[in-house]
Amino acid sequence: DPKEPFCGLVFKIVFASYGELFFLRIYSGTLKPNSRVYNPGKDCKELIAKIYHTRADPRERDEIPLGQAGDIVALIGLKDSITGDTLCETQHPILLERITFAEPVISQSIEPESSADKQKLIDTLTRMSREDPTFAWKVDPDTGQTLMSGMGTLHLEIKRHRMERDFNLRVRVGKPRVSYRETIRHPVQVTGECVRHTGGANLFARVTVEFTSYSGEESIAVRNRLKPDALPPLFVAAAERGIRNALLSGELGYPVLGVQATLLDGELDLQSSNEIAFEAAGADAVHKALRDNILLLEPVMRLEVTVPEEFLGPVSADLNARRCEIKEMLSRGKVRVIHAEGPLSRLFDYAVEVRSLSQGRATPTMEPLKYAPAPDEVLHALLHPEDVY
């Protein structure tokens, strides 16, 4: 309804030489140029400089004086908003349901061919991650390498070509790496401690924490079951913070998934206990819980392979060799459609191989499905890369 307060959803961002173009679907009310709107998700205000109607090519656009409910418009001037954010009137705040995006499942190291382009690479990766929520990047704290992550090898290859074509940035990339996750193999109760003497002062803290498997909207959960007078609130918050930070990276350096930590008990010393000590004790509890208790989780892809009937045997045998589980097989005339699930680590080259097996007549598609326990030999290979199988 155009008479209702304004509300819209940013669903796409396009970067070009003329700047950022934000695509907005208006659900209610009207939107005018040079007006200020509210982003409730970021708790900030945005200035709408100009409003456009665009064609298939975003460079071909017509400036308009007004956007109404039901319109899809392009905006210039937003600073903090990204894909999935809600824009509305300050006096009538409303938060629309966010767009849910899958997590990246594959990573590659990337570096500029010229060291003079380091900052340009960072700026380009930041722009591309704002434009595409399924694309992310980070600097590995252990190796110092810059890693870009996406939904598959083709996704990352397209990003690399775009850097060269649109941003005139020449880069080198490493081999694809699977983004594993870690979880606990068995529930465990541990006592985390911090007993240190640093800088002429003693530090002491002790917490008892129970770690169990967990399935919920969040990847990890931290609960407090301490008695009301067991610890001061600041120390409890510090212990929880130490646990959360330690769970960001497991024993192998991968994020921890599906773990619930419950604080059961705590012990302090009036002279030597502080927030730093309890944060360290919480982190120590995580390290003890994960030690020799890791279950490695690998990304599993959903596969659909359309293949002529005469090549069904070789294609099915190849799927089985890649640890894929065939869920069903459908017939469409002389063509078979295979639905399967398989580990991403064995599917990097699948598109090329399946076409080779079928004389170029098979068509595979895949998408991320879930994380599932990896075989013990995969964990062993990561722990002992020097072993040869």
Rank of each mutant, 00 (worst) to 15 (best):
K3W: 08
C7Q: 13
L9K: 15
V10T: 06
F11L: 09
F11V: 06
V14D: 05
Y18R: 09
L21T: 07
S28N: 09
N34Y: 08
V37G: 01
V37Q: 07
V37E: 02
Y38N: 04
G41P: 00
K42Y: 02
D43W: 00
C44Y: 01
K45N: 09
E46Q: 12
L47R: 12
I51N: 03
R55F: 09
I72L: 10
A74W: 05
K79E: 13
K79P: 00
G84Y: 10
L87Y: 03
E89T: 05
L95S: 09
E103R: 15
P104I: 11
S107N: 04
Q108D: 02
P112D: 15
E113F: 07
A116N: 13
D117E: 14
K118L: 13
I122W: 06
I122Y: 12
D123W: 08
M128T: 00
M128D: 01
P133N: 07
T134H: 11
T134Y: 13
K138G: 03
V139Q: 13
T143V: 11
G144D: 10
M148G: 03
S149H: 07
E157Q: 11
L169C: 04
L169G: 02
V173W: 01
R177K: 15
I184Y: 01
V188G: 04
V190Y: 06
R196S: 06
T198A: 09
G199M: 11
G200D: 10
F204Q: 02
F211A: 06
T212G: 02
Y214N: 02
G216E: 12
E218P: 00
V222F: 03
V222A: 04
V222R: 04
V222I: 13
V222P: 00
A230T: 13
L234K: 10
F235M: 13
A237I: 05
E240P: 00
G242E: 09
I243W: 06
A246Q: 04
A246W: 03
G258F: 10
Q271Y: 05
E279P: 01
E279V: 03
D284T: 01
H287P: 00
L290V: 05
I294E: 01
I294S: 00
M301Y: 05
P308F: 08
E309H: 12
F311W: 09
F311V: 05
V315T: 08
S316T: 14
S316R: 14
I326T: 10
R336A: 09
R336E: 04
R336K: 14
H339Q: 13
E341G: 04
G342W: 08
D349G: 10
A351T: 15
V352Y: 07
V352W: 05
S356T: 12
G360F: 11
R361L: 15
A362N: 07
M366G: 01
P375G: 11
D376F: 08
L379H: 07
L379P: 01
L383C: 08
H384K: 11
